[in-house]
Design a protein around this nucleic acid. Structure first.
Lengths: 181, 181
DNA sequence: CCGACATATATTGACCCGATATACACTAAA
DNA sequence: TTTAGTGTATATCGGGTCAATATATGTCGG
């Protein structure tokens, strides 16, 4: 599942420019997919070449000219085949957990700051997801599910952060003091 | 936080070859960090060049010759400075949620298969994490925390999958039938 | 009037990852 | 017995990704 497929997916929901595809990722998909202009524009060029999308140039007043992309029937079919053969994979990368792995090397105060920042990050993302869930009434069942999935994960992790943070600090302190005394 | 820093991190726990660094990621770090030979070997070469690690060649009987890398004092200091200035970030990519976003395009049976596979994946990872937690008695507080973090997230998501899967299938079915009748 | 922000397309360079190549040893099935 | 598979070990390649940057224009607030 790469940027080509992600673009086809967005375009299967309606025509859009490269800029609008990026925005769609930032708004609706950001908690489980991301991409950048450096991937989107080359992908759209190649998809056009392959006949999976087409575009028209839309000259706007007081705005740069837009290339509006539309998915073709061949593109729809190709996207459907991609969906059918894709495995439900997930990947998770956390600099936060990597830092916690080496918490014993860091000053107590710094660990506290990291734990607080992480908690804030989780709270912020939870807030965004919940706002979309309550504000948008026209979500498809699938979209609603992805948001609830994110909410559930974040809520559980937040609870852990609130319950475990102090304990972790104490444990690290306890493991440190024998050497120092 | 890139492969250079990840290698320094592993080496700060003890000397290792490139192959062993990869194994460390697969065994202990896999639920929140991953990397590949294509990143590790160039990283080790550059770290050597910069004087942050050094290596000796270890000829083994009946095994290929090993390059055993050791972190230098400069490497320790560099790693410490990296830890201090790193932000606690996270990123999550899910082909599974992307597929669910377009579940309305897929046959009911296929959605069921995807939901089952995802549940199995979560169960498997949960099993691995819990096994490490119970079997390894010498874990540092930080390591224990990262494992519990993973366990908590996976448990919450598994519960959601068990509670919500059928409901999702019904909702998609309900949204589909008006057009078909 | 100026700086910040938004719209819009596009490229670059550094980096990352999966696949592949090479090479040897061990083991278990055919 | 041989051959396929697995494990140890190093290394590279190509395609893909990402953050930063360039360019151009318009809006809005201070």
């Amino acid at each position: 599942m790469n940027t080509h497929h992600l673009c086809l997916g967005i375009l299967s929901l309606g025509e859009a420019s490269g800029y609008e595809i990026k925005k769609a990722f930032e708004e609706t998909f950001c908690h489980f997919q991301a991409t950048s202009f450096g991937s989107i524009y080359p992908a759209l060029a190649k998809l056009t070449e392959q006949g999976l999308v087409s575009f028209r140039e839309e000259t706007q007043e007081k705005r740069p000219t837009k290339k509006v992309f539309t998915i073709t029937p061949a593109g729809h079919e190709h996207f459907y085949q991609t969906l059918l053969k894709s495995e439900p994979a997930e990947q998770y990368r956390s600099d936060f957990l990597f830092l916690m792995m080496f918490a014993h090397l860091l000053p107590q105060e710094h660990i506290k700051t990291l734990l607080n920042k992480q908690t804030e990050n989780l709270e912020m993302e939870l807030g965004i997801l919940e706002r979309i869930l309550t504000e948008c009434q026209t979500l498809t069942p699938g979209m609603r599910f992805t948001l609830e999935y994110g909410v559930t994960g974040n809520k559980a992790l937040l609870k852990l952060m609130q319950q475990r943070s102090l304990q972790l600090l104490n444990e690290i302190d306890a493991a440190r003091s024998p050497q120092e005394s």
